[in-house]
């Protein structure tokens, strides 16, 4: 059974149809990529899943539950984490605080319990320590040690991308949405990103849905690819099938005159 399923999704902005009757499904443990030229509606799909946009038609199901009409925080609670194309980090906070925020849903301390934070044995302090330990594991995993106590705004772009990835991982999601994880990275960083994404699936068992423009990256890591153009599905299948598909080549390179 599919872990995640989109059926006949349509999102309009006034007269513009950003996503047009789109359907696809993702199996548990897959790395699934969406490709398409600029303006194809890839990020709009993410925003619909995540609850930032409300689609006009169609359904989005995650583990059999409907996602449409849920707020972003409710979607996060159901086990879907995401990153953003143009980094949405908490820039005036340190790396560790950014990652700790990823643990927000797993922490429970209320206003009253916070009073006890000064005492090692208090509930709030114990919880805080447990989750700090968890966050250190993510720092180890993504090799972010050097950035640990730095303000995120002072980090190089590649590191910021990793912090955002780490924050999403801190949610311990079942499905992670990566919006152009390799955009703006240099060759070396891009190759590293491939490893992280594979590790996320292989070691942490998280299903990955990603949007990417870099075809080499997409080809290397995807189990299946969905190609869209102007909000419509072009084709869907294994990397070899999709990247050699006539329509896909036409969408990217234009027609031979």
């Amino acid at each position: 059974m599919a872990l995640f399923e989109i059926n006949n999704l349509t999102k309009r902005f006034g007269g513009l149809i950003a996503v047009d009757n789109l359907s696809f499904s993702i199996k548990k443990g897959e790395i699934f990529s969406i490709i398409g030229p600029n303006g194809a509606g890839k990020s709009t799909v993410f925003n619909c899943i995540n609850g930032l946009y409300k689609p006009e038609e169609g359904s989005i199901q995650f583990k059999g539950e409907n996602l449409i009409g849920q707020r972003p925080d409710q979607v996060a609670k159901m086990g879907i984490a995401r990153t953003f194309q143009n980094l949405e980090l908490f820039a005036h906070m340190t790396t560790i605080d950014n990652l700790l925020l990823g643990r927000h849903l797993h922490m429970k301390a209320n206003l009253g319990q916070i009073l006890g934070l000064n005492f090692r044995r208090s509930k709030a302090a114990k919880e805080e320590i447990t989750h700090r330990r968890k966050v250190e594991e993510i720092i180890d995993f993504l090799e972010l040690e050097s950035a640990r106590d730095q303000y995120v705004s002072n980090l190089p772009y590649g590191k910021q991308k990793l912090v955002e990835l780490g924050r999403a991982l801190a949610l311990e999601p079942e499905l992670i949405l990566l919006d152009e994880p390799a955009a703006g990275l240099n060759q070396e960083e891009r190759e590293e990103m491939v490893f992280w994404i594979q590790d996320i699936r292989d070691q942490l068992g998280v299903t990955v849905l990603l949007i990417e423009h870099n075809m080499q990256l997409v080809k290397g890591i995807s189990d299946r690819i969905l190609a869209i153009s102007f909000g419509k599905k072009l084709t869907e299948g294994t990397p070899a099938e999709v990247l050699n598909h006539e329509e896909v080549i036409k969408a990217y390179l234009g027609e031979v005159v």
């Binding site: 995540n50 930032l52 972003p72 996060a76 949405e88 980090l89 908490f90 927000h104 999403a168 949610l171």
Partner: peptide
């Protein structure tokens, strides 16, 4: 810092 990111982490 970012209300969009805040809501998407729950």
């Amino acid at each position: 810092d970012s209300d969009i990111a805040a809501s998407s982490i729950g």
